[in-house]
Structures are given as C-alpha cells and as structure tokens.
Amino acid sequence: MAFFSRLKSGLAKTKANFLDKIASTVGIHKKIDEELLSQLEKTLLEADLGVTATEKILNGLKERVKKEKIEASDKIIGLLKEEIGKLLDSSGTTSTTVGTAKLRVIMIVGVNGNGKTTSIGKLANYYKEQGRKVLLAACDTFRAAAIEQLEIWAKRAGAEIVKNQPKADPAAVAFDAIKSAVSQNIDVVIVDTAGRLQTKVNLMEELKKIKKVMGKALPGAPHEILLVIDSTTGQNALSQVERFSQAVEITGIILTKLDGTAKGGIIIPIVSELKIPIKYVGIGEKIEDLEVFEPREFVEALFE
C-alpha cells in the first residue's frame, strides 16, 4: 500500500515523538489512572489537537475504561486509536462531488507561506501521472516572483501555464486560463491564488470575485476549492478554515509540511468540529511528495 508506507516514512518524526511519549507514559504506569490520563492530555495538547478535541478524546476514553472495566495500561493505545479514528471519521463522507464535467477546475487558497505553489506543482504532477492534460493559472499576481515560481513547477510537472504581468487582475487571469483550457482540450486547471490572512476583508472579497469570474468562464467552475494548511499551524488553523469557508466554499484541505516534527494534530478538530475533509498531505519537497489522505490509514500510521 503506497500511501501507508510512504506516509509512514514521512511521518517517522511525527510518529516517533508522538508515540514515544505515550509509550514511555504507558511503561511507567501499569494501570490506567489519573496520572496516566493527565500525561495523555499533555501529549494530545502538545500535538496541537486543541482543548476541545483533547477533552472529547479523553472523555470517550474514560467512559470506555469505566464501562468495559479496562485496567491494564497497555490497552490504552488501541483505545486512543479508536477514539481519534472516530473523530476523523465523524465528517461522514470525505469524498466530494466528483462531477461529470470534462474540464475540472481546482482553486487553491490559503494564508501566506503555507506551501500553496509547491502543492500545486505536486498536484499537477499527480494528475499528469494519471495521463491528464494539466494547465496552471498563475493568479498570484501579488507576491514578488510568485509567477516565476509557478512557471518552474509547471515545467517540472510538464503542465501548461497561463500567466499575466505582476499586479494584473487575478480574476482576469483565471478567466483567460479557463477559456484557454477549454480550447486546448485540457482536463484539469489548477488555479494558484495569492496567500492572504483570513482576516483581511478586502482580500477575501477578491477571492470571492475570482471564484465568481471562473463560474462565468465555465459554468460550474471551480469544481473544487482546496484550502492549504501548514501542519505546524496551531489553533489558528480553525479560524483559517472557518473564514475561508465563509468566503468561498472549501471542499477539502491539503495539509502540508507533515515531514517536520509538527504532529498536524490540528486536523482532528478541523475534521470533527468543522466537518471539512482532508484531501491530500504533503510530506516532502520533491514533486511526488503528495499523497491522497486516508483517515484510517493516517491514524494507523500514527500509531504503527
């Protein structure tokens, strides 16, 4: 299973930290007691799960320990796995409308510096490998050299690119890109947008406009809007998901930089509280370091 093993190696650091702590805790405490639970609380909080999700998991754990009369501490990892799995599953469905449109338009949004452009390069490669014709739209006309950066990725992935001058209207670039994709029989258009903090009202308005204009170029576009989140982000990721969802309808999340020591625990409250599915994870700097996210396997890889 490619995802599983690759994720496992990508997650090596993440996992080592996460598990070592739990394992050593379990080693010291033979019985499930308050001390062990407070150690678990610490581990979960330090993995960025946040106060609410941590409480939810621990309460679920306590309830089961009581109900099923579990005493031995080595059972705790299994229980924890199930509880976290439950939360990651609670979004119900992780697949969104695939749609029947011949041309698929994917819009990528997010705050500054979380890896949007790199993820687009990887995503382009992912679709190219499936034999699709891919076109990238350079709609980050704001940041210095963002267009050049996307061009390099387009070359690496063997994708077409539509661009304009820096400071050009991003909505116009998106429009041109989709029109050009239709005439060139392209299968997938991936639209890069400038990074923006979710509290900047005018920039969020701009995002709405880009989306609207895309719909004018091709009814139904964009078919997917993916929010990129850096896995080192803390609780602010929740605000990012909320605010970006309010502006444009987010259909899924790309979680990047999972190859660091950050545990990416923030995805648990994102999925369980905000019900937005994780679609892909980025686990390295190479073009093939992008994987489709599978919640169950993610939990397994975290504990394996």
Binding site: D48, G113, T232, T233, G234, A237, G260, T261, A262, I266
Partner: peptide, 12 residues
Amino acid sequence: VDGMTGQDAVNI
C-alpha cells in the same frame, strides 16, 4: 517564525 505556529514552535 510564523506567528500562527502551534505547539511545535518551541521544538523549532
């Protein structure tokens, strides 16, 4: 350091 960094900030 990104001001939005979570618990990992101290490790970094």
